[in-house]
Design a protein around this nucleic acid. Structure first.
Lengths: 191, 191
DNA sequence: ACCTGAACACCGTTCAAGT
DNA sequence: ACCTGAACACCGTTCAAGT
């Protein structure tokens, strides 16, 4: 048995920014955003809370920014060649994936919505515009449609996690179907 | 001079739920959501923080719910007769007003997005569906379009306050124009 | 370099007490 | 009925100290 450099004297994996962010996301997903505290995060990492500051000098602000970057940065894949469904199909499947991602981490949605984190959503919007530009959509129309699409996806997810309850208590809303229907409206109008 | 029942012995207007909510909104608009604390709110109301609990027994939770209800509950006006622009025009002007409202109170946007507050958005969604039903849109299409529209408006506002910055540092985005353009896409597709 | 421990200035909330 | 004051169990963060 030679030494294992990834394990320190206390037999624990050493702290890393990535492990901190992932553990924080577990807490948010499991217990909600309000239960994410530096002290609890320290406990989950089996470390004193203050150790976190060594990896995230800006403290909790930086932690929350990291969470947003981790879930909101999901660029769309540019379809290889003339893929089936064309650029609309590529945008549709991106939108479905992105929605699934946001709903899986609904606790961070308020952060995604209002944290001023340029890089996180920027890549995503740029990738959407690129897909449309290749689909021969004019630059202006692509810019508008990209914002419309991202706005729709985020906004609809927000409605879903809130539950608008406009059908009374008993009638159930089929959110999957409703999302797809609204997505069709947006994609049909784009370009 | 007869007695002024609205002024108490300490020469202050008595506390009321409405005055509490409005003062809280002023703090959020002026200093941001993170600076809204019960103690600071008490200071602004010239009262001990604990006095607030007499009017809002559920404490800060109830306070935040009140803020959401105050800014997010804005039903659309049903157009009198066959107004100019028809139902699309009514929805368009509602959307513009609603956006202005959300941007004026951007600090509460994260609360609007994720607080489980049925009544606040429910009235709004119902009023939108009602307008479309009168415009001879089928019930299913109206339900979908209402969610699409509200989702778009909220999501777009979220993008605006974040600032996606996808055009680099110098090129400025005309958010007003972009919102209107996206709104046209959604309204054209609806019905 | 990486982590700890004690300390500071805050939080939200309870509860008994005042008027 | 309405508000106060002290107290409790938490926060995020700084800073000197340990290894």
């Amino acid at each position: 048995m030679v030494r294992q450099p990834a394990i320190n004297a206390q037999n624990r994996a050493p702290l890393s920014t990535e492990r901190i962010i992932e553990t924080a996301l577990q807490i948010v997903d499991g217990q909600g955003l309000s239960r994410l505290t530096m002290r609890r995060l320290g406990d989950a990492l089996e470390v004193e809370a203050m150790a976190i500051y060594h990896h995230l000098p800006r403290g909790k602000e930086q932690l929350l920014d990291g969470l947003v970057a981790h879930v909101a940065a999901a660029p769309a894949a540019v379809p290889a060649g003339a893929a089936d469904g064309g650029w609309r199909g590529a945008l549709r499947s991106w939108a479905r994936d992105y929605r699934a991602r946001l709903l899986a981490h609904a606790g961070v949605l308020p952060l995604v919505v209002t944290r001023r984190n340029p890089t996180a959503l920027t890549e995503t919007v740029v990738s959407l515009r690129e897909i449309m530009r290749r689909g021969a959509v004019t630059e202006d129309a692509a810019a508008t449609a990209a914002h419309t699409l991202v706005g729709y996806v985020i906004g609809h997810c927000a409605l879903e996690v809130r539950g608008t309850g406009e059908d009374g208590a008993d009638r159930v809303v089929d959110w999957d179907a409703r999302f797809d229907a609204g997505l069709d409206l947006v994609l049909t109008a784009a370009g």
